[in-house]
């Protein structure tokens, strides 16, 4: 069995199962915790739980005007990276093909050039994020292994994916092998580290938004 066979066979099989198991574990672990009943009275400006939850999901995704001047670069880089990843994942023809072959679901792909541009932007932002985390004195102090691993495990699939799409530097087989293996490494780590924000980010915002919305606090 070649490394590529391993990547397309057992590694794909087990990394998918580990990711599914891990995500359900993490979500169930939080969802089944005892809910503390909110006994506070609804405030005069209460928006209700549902509107509060939905509003917070949106409002926390937008930059704060007060801090915008200071955080502009972070906001732009964050947006570019996340949008880039979304375009690569949902717009790249080989990724749609993978989903289609696994689930039967399919949608039109974006032109190769658009995905290439998004990939380039994502790669640059990821490198920037990594370098900044390594060099910024405060960020470095706040960072742990999880932070670095999560960035690297996102960066490597993007880098190998770009080389693979352009079929350059290394043979196609080598690039395909390492691209698939690096994605699988990310899938395995996804539920257990900071990458789990993929599923927790909106759920977390919704919970606090519901609570604050009922009380009428601005978020």
């Amino acid at each position: 069995m070649t490394l590529l066979d391993f990547a397309r066979g057992p590694a794909l099989y087990w990394s998918t199962l580990i990711m599914v198991c891990g995500l359900v574990w993490r979500l169930a672990g939080v969802a089944l915790l005892p809910f503390r009943p909110d006994r506070s009275a609804a405030g005069p400006q209460s928006r209700g739980r549902v509107r509060g939850a939905l509003g917070t999901i949106v409002s926390r995704s937008l930059p704060r005007r007060t801090f915008l001047a200071r955080t502009f670069a972070t906001v732009v880089v964050g947006y570019a990276m996340h949008l880039g990843l979304l375009i690569i994942l949902l717009g790249g023809a080989p990724h749609i093909l993978l989903v289609a072959q696994a689930t039967g679901l399919s949608w039109p792909s974006l032109p190769k050039g658009v995905v290439a541009l998004a990939s380039a932007v994502t790669l640059v932002t990821l490198v920037f994020v990594l370098v900044r985390r390594c060099t910024h004195p405060v960020l470095r102090l706040l960072s742990n292994f999880d932070d670095f691993l999560s960035i690297v495990l996102t960066l490597v699939p993007v880098a190998t994916g770009i080389l693979l799409a352009e079929e350059t530097v290394l043979p196609y087989r080598t690039l395909l092998t390492w691209h698939i293996l690096s994605v699988e490494a990310m899938m395995i780590w996804l539920p257990f580290g900071k990458l789990s924000h993929v599923v927790f980010v909106f759920a977390g915002r919704a919970v606090s938004g519901a609570k604050l919305g009922k009380r009428g606090a601005t978020t």
Partner: peptide
């Protein structure tokens, strides 16, 4: 770009295990 991923029942099993641990 595809591969031999797990069948749906294995995915369901993994989700059940996750639910159990969680």
């Amino acid at each position: 770009s595809g591969g031999e991923g797990p069948p749906w029942d294995a995915v369901g099993g993994a989700a059940a295990v996750g639910l159990g641990i969680g």
